[in-house]
């Protein structure tokens, strides 16, 4: 009888833990790239070249992963829809590295300044898009 009670209590506790975990997992928000180890550290020109030379290979290597990119700030805009956007120059007038930051209060980098950011690569669509970025230096 006592054993059955213990098993019941254990099952209830396990059920409660599973329920709490499920709720936490369901409600989990998107996190920025602060704690992510980048799959690559490279400059803006090299990242664009990776996509323009072989988009499939670059998609396989970078998409969905954190990438650390350095370059000169070409422009910055926002906040818009709660996001700041910083464009890194690639030397190609048609394509940039577009870095989205989920922090609308961040200080806008000055065009021409050197910046290193880390963000999740979303792919190449005229520009290479990095999301949920953080400034490394």
């Amino acid at each position: 009888m006592r054993r059955g009670k213990i098993i019941l209590i254990v099952l209830v506790v396990l059920g409660a833990i599973a329920g709490i975990y499920g709720l936490w997992e369901y409600d989990r928000g998107l996190t920025d790239a602060s704690d992510e180890k980048p799959v690559d550290r490279l400059d803006a020109v090299a990242l664009l070249n990776a996509f323009t030379n072989d988009e499939s290979a670059a998609n396989a290597k970078y998409n969905g992963h954190a990438v650390q990119v350095s370059g000169l700030v070409k422009d910055a805009s926002g906040p818009e829809n709660g996001k700041m956007t910083v464009m890194l120059d690639t030397g190609d007038p048609l394509s940039m590295i577009v870095c989205e930051f989920d922090d609308p209060a961040m200080t806008r980098p000055v065009p021409g300044s050197q910046l290193t950011v880390k963000g999740f690569c979303a792919g190449f669509n005229l520009d290479v898009l990095l999301q949920r970025c953080v400034i490394v230096e």
Partner: peptide
């Protein structure tokens, strides 16, 4: 880009 769609929840 499909990965550029932002949702309210990570899951």
């Amino acid at each position: 880009l499909m990965k550029a769609f932002s949702f309210e929840k990570a899951l």
